[in-house]
Each structure stands twice: as C-alpha cells, then as structure tokens.
Design a protein around this nucleic acid. Sequence first.
DNA 1: TGTCGGATCGTG
DNA 2: ACGATCCGACAC
Length: 176
Amino acid sequence: METAVRITETEAYRAPEDRASHAYGNKRTPRTEVFFHAPGTAYVYLCYGIHEMMNVVTGPAGTPHAVLIRAGEPSRGTEFIMARRKINTLHPRLTSGPGVLTKALGIDRSLNGSNLLDPAGKIRLEVTGPPVDSSAITATPRIGIDYAGAPWVNKPWRFYLRDNPFVSRLGAFKET
DNA sequence: TGTCGGATCGTG
DNA sequence: ACGATCCGACAC
C-alpha cells in the first residue's frame, strides 16, 4: 500500500550557526552525520523517547541545512494513513504534527539516511504541481526550541500553507 | 558508567 | 499542567 501526503508545514534548521539545530557548530556525531550528506537525504531521529521526526537535508553536501517536515495533507491512501494514526476517521479527532505525521506514514529511524530523490526508494520526495505562491505561505517562529535562545527562537522559520487545516498546533482537527 | 533533557502529544 | 519513554551527548 502506497501512501502520500502533500507537505503543508515545515521548519528550517540552519546549522552551523543555528543553535536550534542538532548540527549546531558543525557538530559531527553518529547521529548528525547525515546532515553532511547530499541534499535529499532523510534525517530521522527519536524525539522525547517517543516520536520519530523526519527531516530533509537540503545541503549542499557538507553544509548541515535541513528542513523538518511537520505536517501533511493525505493525498494517497488516506484511509490507511488515518488507520495508522489509530484515529477514527468518522470522528477525526485529528491533531497534527511531526510525530503524528511520521507515524501515519510509517516512517521510522530505519529510514535515516535514505535518499529521498531515488525514484525507486521506499520513501520519496516528489515535486508534483506548480510552485506554491509565496502569498499563500505564513511564516512564524519555530516550535519547541526555546533552549536555542535569541535570536534563533525568534527566527520566522516555520512555514505553513495558510488556511490549510492540516497544520500543527492550530486545533483545526480537534473534535468540535 | 551516570546524568540530563529534549525540533512531542494526548490526556486531565 | 503533566507524564510517557529512550537514547544521544557530555561529564566524570
């Protein structure tokens, strides 16, 4: 069963300067190694001991830039996606967020280091439609990175599609 | 070898 | 507001 989502929300992490990034200061450890790989590489890690989080390395190779995928709108295999979330489709008590998204898509750390641009890959990133007009995108500060301090905590590097309900922390899918 | 805390989330 | 849950990073 193949599932797909349209990405609706992201956050940018711009090491080496960005204190919020795991690769801050070009820190190179087994975990951060993939940050330095080619753009299009997946970085998947365990957060709070519970949630798997997925990033796309944006490179260029050797430059640890990455984008956290925070939310997506189901576009293929919607029912399967909902089932994997373990949430009742008829009563969509849906919240959203990076941990829920990976669970819904079956993404875990075994996919860390995957080449997302490989058409034959188990997981892929595709460009399908025309570019989204920038006027449809809202930018806000990133979530959950208070430890990074100023100015990083204030950088408007969280981006989401305005008016799209499949976005985290808006309560759009809480039961009415 | 030990400690500390986190790019979250659902419940209370 | 809080607990779950585990492992990476760094101190000792």
